[in-house]
Amino acid sequence: MLEAKSLTKRYGDVLALDGLDLKVKEGEVFCLLGANGAGKTTTIHLFLHFVEPTGGQAFVDGREVAKNPLEARRLIAYIPEQVNFYSSMTGTENLGYFSALAGFDYAPGDLSAFLRDAGLQDEAHGRPVGTYSKGMRQKVGIALALSKRARALMLDEPTSGLDPKASNEFSLLLRKLGDQGIAVLMATHDLFRAKESGHRVGIMREGKMNTVLDTEKLGHSELEKIYLDHMAN
């Protein structure tokens, strides 16, 4: 579903992403692990064509992103690190607006259903988003991904700033999305969350993908050790 071939991004002298090769299948949750500046966000931005690649290609569903960025964005749902909506508008209104940007026209009942599926309680649907907590806003983001019938989901540090309960709910939600056949690419530096929600974990450092691990076969402490090893050398 998602594929990167020698994907490279250079900002002046800084090599932000250095020849990344990556494949994420349908239904797979792939976590990018790494410190700040490792190239995780750049990878996501390249798939969304928020920035122009310096070299290599990114593909979504076999179509090259750089050639048709709008088409790619229609297939991908994206939840940025600071997920913000228009604060004076309600959750339902925001969802309606953003899904309209993607070309959908839902009835209010449908929008509420998406929000409910994403785990947002009914009483919150009609409140301005300005009154939401971060977890609640994230749920609107998930609802947006659902409403878009996206084939892939990109998340940038989704769990930073969430309390443990909310984080847990979030992991379960991601798995559920994976089960529906959505390819998920998630950037995080939360080892625990990566292990919990991801099928595979890629460890990045200075723009390079150092290693890719299967989470099923690893324990938490093992993962931590490997991670620290990679950070150290």
């Binding site: 969304l48 928020f50 964005r73 749902a77 600071q82 953003f98 940007l101 947006l144 878009k148």
Partner: peptide, 18 residues
């Protein structure tokens, strides 16, 4: 600044239309 722009663009709307 509030990242709403990223979200909007990720929906596949072109900046020009926006």
């Amino acid at each position: 600044e509030s990242r709403v722009l990223k979200l909007a663009l990720s929906q596949g709307v072109s900046p020009e239309i926006l």
